[in-house]
Design a protein around this nucleic acid. Structure first.
Length: 578
DNA sequence: GCCGTTTTCGGCCCGACTGTTTTCAGTCG
């Protein structure tokens, strides 16, 4: 049984936690943590790489030692250094670190003084009032621990989907912008990096006197709790349970602060490290000569200035994940990321013939209004009975209607398509001669999500063998916070797509965002072509393109990697199989 | 444990806020 990437990452995280509790060299701890993050974010199978004898030290933060440990873990299923640590301290201590406000020192102290080594122990001790008797623990901490245990038991705080975060952020930004003295305001953090989910919102304002905006912030009607409040930073919990941080700096520091609060943390560390090498100290107030505190920063009003100080061009927020963007920037090979303006059409849309809300004409006109040259109509096929999927006759009738519409529509061409189901055996839900009459197909899985990896992967590859297979719709099948992804060998799938000149979709439905960012990256590296689509079920849904674009940008995707950045002629060529 | 435009040794990002304390350690981002 091969060891999955996430299992490897989990072991390294556990190791980092336990070492930290033991008081081990923090840089060694960080090395394990970084490794966990890097490995967990990879799209390719580490086990496969080990099997093929690939050099793992090409990944940042993986050196000779770690590469060796990974190899051992893959080959034997054992991580001896972890086993060693677990002999000294209970492995469950690692789980206690999940409690907010409880860090390594706290866990160690509770273990030493009260022999607490599980959530149950911790809860019991807190209820019995034994925690606050330990040095550096008080009544407040004891109560907060009980609250946090409850939260953890009820599944913990879920990350918020980007689209939902936007709905909170938009009015909040408007509200804060109206505060006295606010000169600029922006949502930073993972929101600005356009990550598919955000843990909290980080809002940055520029102003000389932060008093009024901070006061306005904590007194917003949606605030359920003021978690912390200061002059430069305050944190609240909204009634929706989303945490929001507000940070205030002066205009001369705005760029440095924006860079810092945009993150990711790993990206910041790497940039600051470059600063140190060049004799600078970089913080959220600006760039300073090393060793100097206060005084006038050498740079900091804009992000460009900060990057310039460390010899780099500005890096787009979507790339700031420490996934090689700094090296790419240094070597002048940052990607020219695809933009919403590059998009010439949408290749996945439904109508009221199945589960969409509007007819062909309304969808076509809305697409034309967006400035598109084409829109592919891709209703469900019959297997999706819930959505009243199309059979061959209804599909032909729709095609005739599209032909009529194309005669009279100006400036937009409707493409005849279908979102045809990939059946369990890898065949498609409509006969070949019917599919042959279409301009294109989106082929998707809507049933049998739980096949084992080999069979699920084979199923899709077999479907790709059908000459009418064009675009793989929402490839992983996951829905964010709801349904796990199909168990797929994404690397094999991408390679199969490249070999057959099939295209992978990046679905812009905010609950899907599928392909994922790291899979977009993998696809791009292997030379697979992508289609950015909205899977629109009504007219407003056509506006979801920006989410597909965001996701693709996080995967380093350029306009040239995307077939629907081309004009109609170019698109038709890209859709040819041969 | 990683890493190299001073380095293969000796560094390793940096500051805000809280709670528990009378000056700061711990945690977080």
């Amino acid at each position: 049984m091969p060891v999955h990437n996430h299992e490897i990452a989990e072991r390294f995280t556990r190791l980092a936690n336990l070492l930290e509790i033991e008081g081990e060299n923090p840089y060694r701890v960080r090395a394990y943590r970084n490794a966990a993050r890097t490995l967990g974010g990879l799209s390719v199978s580490i086990a496969d790489m080990v099997a093929e004898g690939e050099d793992l030290t090409r990944y940042p933060g993986i050196g000779k030692d770690l590469a060796g440990r990974i190899r051992t873990l893959v080959e034997t299923g054992e991580l001896p250094v972890l086993t060693e640590v677990e002999r000294r301290v209970p492995t469950e201590l690692s789980d206690l670190m999940a409690i907010e406000g409880l860090g390594p020192k706290g866990v160690r102290s509770l273990y030493k003084k009260l022999s607490i080594d599980s959530l149950e122990d911790l809860e019991e001790a807190a209820r019995a009032g034994r925690i606050h008797q330990v040095e550096r623990f008080g009544e407040k901490t004891e109560q907060s621990i009980l609250k946090e245990i409850n939260k953890l038991r009820s599944g913990g705080r879920q990350r918020t989907r980007l689209v939902d975060a936007e709905e909170v952020a938009r009015p909040l930004v408007e509200y804060l912008a109206a505060a006295e003295g606010v000169e600029a305001i922006e949502v930073a953090g993972s929101f600005r990096r356009r990550k598919e989910t955000v843990g909290d919102l980080d809002i940055l304002v520029s102003c000389e006197d932060s008093g009024p905006v901070m006061e306005r912030f904590v007194s917003h009607e949606d605030v359920a709790e003021v978690v912390s409040q200061g002059t430069t930073r305050s944190t609240v919990r909204l009634s929706s349970d989303l945490h929001v941080d507000l940070r205030a700096v002066s205009a001369k520091s705005y760029g440095a602060a924006l860079h810092y609060f945009t993150g990711s943390q790993a990206h910041n560390i790497a940039v600051r490290q470059r600063g140190v090498e060049r004799g600078y100290k970089i913080n959220e107030y600006g760039v300073f000569p090393s060793g100097e505190s206060g005084g006038k920063p050498m740079a900091g009003a804009t992000e460009e200035e900060v990057y310039d100080c460390v010899g780099l061009p500005w890096i787009a927020p979507e790339l700031r994940e420490d996934r090689g963007e700094i090296q790419a920037a240094e070597e002048g090979r940052l990607p020219e990321l695809v933009t919403v303006e590059d998009m010439r059409g949408d290749l996945h849309a439904h109508t009221d013939a199945t589960d969409g809300g509007e007819g062909l004409r309304a969808m076509a006109e809305a697409a034309a209004d967006r400035g598109y040259e084409y829109l592919a109509i891709t209703d469900h096929s019959k297997r999706v009975s819930m959505a009243h999927g199309l059979d061959a006759d209804r599909l032909r009738a729709q095609g005739a209607e599209i032909d009529r519409l194309n005669e009279e529509l100006e400036g937009i061409t409707l493409l005849k398509g279908i979102e045809v189901d990939i059946l369990e055996d890898g065949s498609l839900d409509l006969p070949d001669d019917v599919l042959a009459g279409l301009d294109m197909t989106v082929c998707s899985i809507h049933y049998q999500f739980n096949l084992p990896r080999d069979r699920q992967t084979e199923r899709i590859i077999r479907a790709m063998d059908n000459p009418h297979f064009r675009i793989l719709g929402h490839p992983s099948g996951r829905t964010i916070n709801e349904r796990e992804a199909l168990d797929l060998d994404m690397e094999r799938l991408v390679e199969a797509a490249v070999e057959r000149n099939c295209i992978l979709e990046v679905n812009g439905q905010p609950g899907r965002l599928d392909l994922r960012d790291t899979d977009c990256m993998l696809a791009r590296e292997r030379g697979a072509k992508l289609a950015l689509s909205t899977d629109a079920h009504n007219v407003p849904n056509l506006g979801l393109m920006r989410f597909a674009v965001d996701q693709a940008r996080r995967g380093w995707v350029e306009a040239g990697d995307v077939i629907n950045t081309r004009d109609l002629q170019g698109l038709k060529r890209a859709l040819e199989r041969a």
